[in-house]
Computed example of a mutant assay.
Amino acid sequence: MSNQSKIILLSLMLFTVEGCSMSRAVNKTLSPPPDTKWANFEVKNPSQYTKPFPLEVRYISYECMKKRISGFDGSVITEPSYNFIGIPMQQESGEIWKAKVVMTGGGSCKWTLSAVNLGIEYIDAIHLGKDLVPGTAVGVTLAFDNDASRNGQFTFVTGDVDLSPKYYPYIREKKIGGVENSLSLIGKKDFLSLRVGEISSVKFSPELDERKITSFVGLEKKIKDKYPKIIYPDGSVAPEKTLFPDFDKIDKMNVN
């Protein structure tokens, strides 16, 4: 599971007491109706060192409500219940991985599809450094309803989805505290955010160019007026106190 979806899951479950009609346990069993629609997901894996992570699927129910204690004033808030499911992707042929998700989960709580996370992550990092471990994942968050897109940071799209975002390797050498050095992927955004409707298919075909490696080099120890460095593929160094690499700068670089 990606770091982003773990944070979402924790925030939704924090201080939550679940109940169906406010009195009995929520039944999370799915029972799709015979005429339900399915959404088909396809990921084209760009490298032998990466792999699609299992689909992170969230269903929502307005039939079975839950109570949540507000962290601000202790008041009781009534809101919908959520049902989180992981669906492994199956390798169809070579680099193509597929899975499908039911749009209407049904069941006694009348579950409906709210959001899906999909994407890729490194599963092997030592080909770019013997001390590296796989880092964070990248991909896309698809919101199927207003609840999932309520933070307003989602781009509305119509019809089926076909994405081919670019990614480059990002090595983090965090030296203080003995943190493991990691290899992640960097893109225009770590996770694209799209608001969709009743789509039938999603294709995610990321491009990965490992010739352009950006590195974050930490300090051996804290030293006044000394800061970690971000080193771009051409050897140039980002200005001091830069927190994140400039993706557009990486993308435009010519590296042999």
Rank of each mutant, 00 (worst) to 15 (best):
K100A: 02
A115E: 15
D160I: 04
N151Q: 14
N117G: 11
L208S: 09
A125Q: 02
F191I: 05
L219W: 01
G197M: 05
E92T: 15
I87Q: 10
I223V: 15
P165R: 09
S201D: 04
L185P: 10
G106K: 11
S215G: 00
E180K: 15
G106C: 08
S215A: 09
D124I: 03
A99V: 06
L142V: 08
Y170P: 07
V140P: 11
P206F: 01
A137K: 13
K175F: 03
N181C: 02
E92F: 09
L192H: 00
K130V: 12
F144G: 06
S108W: 00
L183P: 12
G105M: 11
G197V: 05
H127V: 07
I87R: 09
E198P: 04
I123P: 00
R150S: 15
A115V: 03
E121Y: 03
G187P: 07
F156Q: 14
L219E: 13
W111E: 13
K130A: 12
F144M: 06
P134H: 08
K221E: 15
K221C: 03
K98P: 00
A125S: 15
I120D: 07
A137E: 14
L194R: 06
L132G: 11
V133H: 02
L194Q: 10
V157K: 14
L185D: 11
M103Y: 14
T141G: 00
G94L: 09
F204N: 08
F191R: 00
G129T: 08
N146A: 13
K189E: 14
L128E: 11
L142C: 10
K166A: 10
S114D: 12
L208M: 02
L118G: 11
V217S: 05
G187M: 13
Q91H: 01
